[in-house]
Every structure is written in C-alpha cells, then in structure tokens.
Amino acid sequence: MNKKVLIVEDDMALFNMYSVELKIKGYDVLNINDGLQALPKAKDYQPDIVLLDIMLPGMNGLNILTELKSDPQTTEIPVIMLTNYGSEDNVKKALESGAADYIMKYKILPSELSDKIDAVLGTSTDSDVKIAI
C-alpha cells in the first residue's frame, strides 16, 4: 500500500515537478489547487502527509493549516508548509500551529523534498544501510 501525499498548490508547473518525483519514489499523489477543497479532500483522501502552499489565491495557507489541525479527522496528518516568501513571523506561526516543517520552495530541489518526506514518514528506502553480519 503506497503512502499518500496530498499537495495543495496552485502552480501547476511546481505540482508536476513534485508529483512526478514523488511517484517515482513510490508515493500516490493528489493535487488540489483550490484551498477551499483542502479540508474536505483531506478528510476524504486521508493522506499520510500534506504539502501545503502558504500563498493560495484568495486565502492564506496558515488558515488551512489551523483547520486541518483542529479537525479530529485530519489532526494527526503531518503538514509541511511550502512557500517562496517566508517571513520569520510566518515560520513561527506555522510551527506554533502544528506544522511539521516549513520549506522555502526556491531553496529545495524536488529530490530533496522527497527525501524530507521520506524522513518525516520514516519510509527511507536508503539501501546504503549495511547490516554487519
């Protein structure tokens, strides 16, 4: 059973990068570009992790984060905030509101993002781990 990732991002080009990368890594990916759909879809889809953009058309990702964390059906799901413009205020607010991490999109390559997700979900497929016999 593949782990599920819900990506709430309105930039299709970014979504393509992330979703292709995550699919290669063996995840199932669902995209939402409308923030209003985030909570209902999350409850329905029950992803193992949510990637949430802060700047969505007409709404603030931080509000969606609060929604997700306050709803019992989704509160356990780790959320990683994504943004291209982060102020210290926002970072603090996000982490205080329960985000698992806060990532600057322009600093991270898709492969690095998928590594982070692996780490959060504990699904590291690193075959470098050698067991001494």
Partner: peptide
C-alpha cells in the same frame, strides 16, 4: 517582486534537475 521572481526560477531549476 521577490515572489514573482522566485516562482518561475524554482520551476526552471527544479524541472532541469528532474
């Protein structure tokens, strides 16, 4: 402006890396 510049550049870099 910062936002408008970073967004496409992120896509360019990320896509090339992919």
């Amino acid at each position: 402006m910062v936002h408008e510049l970073r967004a496409p550049l992120t896509v360019i870099r990320g896509s090339a890396d992919m």
